[in-house]
Design a protein around this nucleic acid. Structure first.
Lengths: 118, 118
DNA sequence: CCTACTTCTTGACATATATCGAGGTAAGTG
DNA sequence: CACTTACCTCGATATATGTCAAGAAGTAGG
């Protein structure tokens, strides 16, 4: 893979025409791909599902670690991927960090990929 | 990454409850993640977009290669990923292979990830 | 048969990444 | 202050993957 992917700010909202409407630009393809990559891991899918289920109260690293067969360091790593993609928001409260899912960010990504959008 | 992902048949239809409805099972998380992985690459997003735009007539490797800055071998590699995930169907006609997007497969994947599904 | 075209395969290579253990920092508790 | 809990960071390691060059294999047209 001699061609390395550029680092791009993803925490902002995704906004580009759906793939089914016309041929996507290279820049938009990259933005979409990076966000999908943040989601394309079984542990992260499970994490997102757990965070979604926790609702607006949020959920902590330790609680998530208890549900999975990985260490807290690994959970922290995955939570950072999801946060950097704008799919989660993290708010520190005392010793704990509470993670809440950003449904609108996930919704925007889903809409771009929807083949029946129009 | 000591824990390697198992190889799973993905060409069949994806069918599992949306992530927003409840906590997803480990097996379903794996299925979803593998399909997202097949999509999580800028070249593949662009390819899917081009194949979608080509409609039911399909489009050939050579035509796709002309639109991208990669070799035909790389395009072939990516087309196989997409096909193995059930997102494309390939039909050989003489010397050429025509690729057509499977909108229902893409739609099923999108529905599972939709945070506003219900 | 010879040539051209299309696709796919293989092997090599560099990069990316998922995971863990160890340890550090900060907050809360007795 | 000591102890615990929660989270993160760092370094190491094994695996995964995107890319290309080279070439094989199939098809078509003289």
């Amino acid at each position: 893979m001699p061609k390395s992917l550029p680092v791009i700010e993803l925490s902002g909202p995704l906004c580009c025409p759906p793939v089914a409407v016309g041929v996507i630009s290279d820049a938009d393809a990259l933005e979409v791909a990076l966000r999908l990559k943040a989601l394309a891991d079984p542990v992260r899918i499970k994490l997102l599902s757990l965070v979604l289920a926790a609702g607006l109260d949020g959920i902590r690293n330790a609680d998530l670690t208890r549900e999975l067969r990985v260490t807290d360091a690994t959970v922290s790593h995955h939570l950072r991927q999801l946060s950097r993609a704008g799919l989660l928001t993290a708010t520190r409260e005392g010793a704990s960090t509470y993670y809440v899912a950003d449904r609108s960010a996930l919704g925007a990504l889903v809409r771009v990929m929807d083949p029946h959008c129009c």
